[in-house]
Amino acid sequence: MPWQTRTIEQRLTSMSRSAEQRLTAQGHMAEGAQIAANSVLGVILKELAGQISDLDGHLAWRGDQLQPDTSELELLERHAGRVNIFRKPATLAYGDVTVTGVEGAVIPAGTRLQASAAPGVVFTSRAETAIAGGTATLTVDAGTEGAIGNLPAAAPMSLVVPVAGIDPAAVAAAEGITRGVDAETDAQLLSLLLFRKRNPPRGGKPADYVRWTLEVAGIVAAWAYETEPSRGYVTVRFLLDPAAGGPIPTEADRLAVLAHLNGHEDEVTGQPEGRPAGMEARAVLVDAYPIDYTIALDDDTPANRAAVEAELAAQLLLDGAPAVTVRVSRQREAVSRAAGETYHRMTVPAADIALGVNQYPVVGAITWEPY
């Protein structure tokens, strides 16, 4: 049974009764007499009860620090560091921006832009570019790490300092500005640590490939398959953080994962780590499988619609995996969980959806009907 830590009052009562029994047995107190709270002995017992309670609390705290899932942040990072797991740092967003201006006008490298959707973030162009056909495309990097630097396609931007011949207004290009990822959260770090403890390194088993893939910045889920497509191969499929433009990864992400699987340096030992000799690693991109919905809300407002869409996306990210069967009951549960929803009716999808091995479910078009 679990250890029950007593309160100061419970401990003081227990100590007082014990002292009274001993003093009575030795003839120093009358039968039934009690130690007065303001007596010398009463004050000493109260102080001792408080000190012992402090020790109990410290021992309970120390016990919590022995396990990573109950330890505090500093100790969690020490637990993880002992098995070479370290918090993934935040990354800078980058992407293309479309600007307009006078034909032949030059935008110098280092030109700074800003966006109201990313307050406080300054974006800097990488290279000098000239206007051709009325427009130019700049590749920019965010100056602040994390998801705050991400911008959707067509997000309005503007030059921080005017450039001759260049219109002050600009927009994020079709793919937006992405790949900005916040530093790994405590929950994510703990999840990786627990996965490592439950799946210790075994010289190239599938769990090793999953762990290596999750070490790559921005990757939030991974699956590894032995002997696919044949003996001597391990195939990995993975997802990108939605905040960085995911969950569907790109070719650049695939190449980054493959390079890490083929060999990387251990952060602590400095020794090479990765796929064993004689094995071939494959990183395969999953394709988005849009799931369309037809939903009627009793209180159909823009805010409630947005809440429903967010819950559906979160549910698919939680349940999704290659070759998964998307359960319609789980989708209805997600809609019911949305803030502002009281009653709803979902007619599409009407049945579970079985996906292929390279398919991953994402929210498609939502048709809103009257309730």
Results as ranks from 00 to 15, higher is better:
8 I>T: 13
10 Q>H: 11
19 A>E: 11
30 A>T: 13
36 A>L: 15
37 A>M: 14
39 S>C: 09
43 V>A: 14
44 I>D: 12
49 A>K: 02
49 A>T: 10
50 G>W: 11
58 H>I: 14
61 W>V: 10
63 G>Y: 08
64 D>G: 07
65 Q>A: 08
78 R>P: 00
84 N>A: 15
85 I>G: 01
85 I>Y: 01
87 R>N: 08
90 A>H: 01
91 T>V: 09
97 V>P: 02
97 V>Q: 03
100 T>F: 10
103 E>R: 07
103 E>W: 05
103 E>G: 06
107 I>C: 04
108 P>M: 12
110 G>K: 08
110 G>M: 09
110 G>S: 08
116 S>V: 14
116 S>W: 09
120 G>A: 08
124 T>A: 06
126 R>E: 12
132 A>I: 13
133 G>Y: 05
136 A>T: 05
136 A>I: 06
137 T>S: 10
137 T>D: 07
157 M>V: 05
159 L>C: 07
163 V>T: 04
173 A>N: 14
175 E>N: 15
177 I>H: 00
183 A>L: 04
192 L>P: 00
192 L>H: 14
202 R>Q: 15
205 K>I: 10
213 T>W: 03
225 Y>Q: 04
225 Y>G: 01
234 V>W: 01
234 V>F: 01
239 L>W: 00
239 L>D: 00
242 P>C: 10
244 A>R: 02
249 P>D: 09
254 R>D: 04
265 E>P: 00
266 D>T: 06
271 Q>L: 14
272 P>G: 06
281 A>T: 03
285 L>M: 06
287 D>P: 00
290 P>M: 11
292 D>H: 10
293 Y>W: 14
296 A>D: 05
298 D>S: 15
303 A>K: 10
306 A>H: 07
307 A>S: 14
309 E>Y: 01
312 L>G: 02
313 A>M: 02
313 A>S: 12
314 A>I: 03
323 A>D: 15
323 A>Y: 03
323 A>M: 05
330 R>G: 06
330 R>V: 03
331 Q>T: 03
332 R>Y: 04
332 R>W: 06
341 E>N: 12
349 P>W: 06
351 A>H: 11
353 I>M: 08
354 A>Q: 15
361 P>A: 11
362 V>I: 15
365 A>K: 10
369 E>N: 12
369 E>Y: 04
371 Y>M: 12
